[in-house]
């Protein structure tokens, strides 16, 4: 019974929606603009905590950036304008999802290339093994000499 309660608790914790750090006093009045600000906030890195988004973080700098993102949106910036505004100041690092460009080629293409390479190696390995262990298509009958040896062995073991 206790286990069941614990399970229910853990399940509840797992399903609980994450609490954003956005405070009511920061929000924009226009719900559509606020939704855009939330969406953007989730993909922008908090430069202090580094592995949290500015939407998640309680750091003061994250709060400042949330306010500045809302300010830009209120001024009529598009989502891309806001992203560019922050990248110009903090670099690509501020984007939680790194952009696809020449300096990030290894990052983006590395895993698929490794996976394909591994798959090719495994395929090659099995193909080669099958070729060496495959039984000949035509069964060669025993020669008379071989037949005699087999008979003798069978007789020795008392069959």
């Amino acid at each position: 019974m206790r286990h069941l309660a614990l399970c229910a608790l853990l399940l509840g914790l797992g399903m609980a929606s994450p609490a954003w750090a956005v405070n009511p006093d920061e929000m924009l009045k226009d719900p559509a603009k606020e939704a855009r600000a939330r969406e953007l906030g989730r993909e922008l890195r908090c430069m202090v905590c580094q592995n949290q988004s500015i939407d998640d973080s309680d750091a003061d700098l994250a709060r400042d950036l949330r306010l500045i993102v809302r300010e830009r949106i209120d001024l009529g910036d598009s989502d891309n304008d806001v992203r560019r505004f922050l990248v110009e100041r903090y670099g690509d690092y501020v984007l939680l999802k790194p952009p696809f460009k020449s300096s990030t080629l290894a990052l983006w293409l590395g895993p698929p290339v490794l996976l394909l390479g591994a798959a090719a190696t495994v395929a090659l390995f099995y193909r080669r093994r099958r070729r060496t262990t495959v039984t000949p298509a035509v069964e060669v009958p025993l020669s008379p000499e071989e037949q005699r040896r087999l008979d003798r062995l069978l007789k020795e073991t008392g069959q």
């Binding site: 430069m47 202090v48 700098l61 709060r63 400042d64 950036l65 500045i68 100041r89 903090y90």
Partner: peptide, 14 residues
């Protein structure tokens, strides 16, 4: 003062 617009323009992280 907060929200530190100039500091953000400088790309300050701390």
């Amino acid at each position: 003062p907060a929200p530190g617009r100039t500091a953000v323009d400088f790309g300050v992280t701390g």
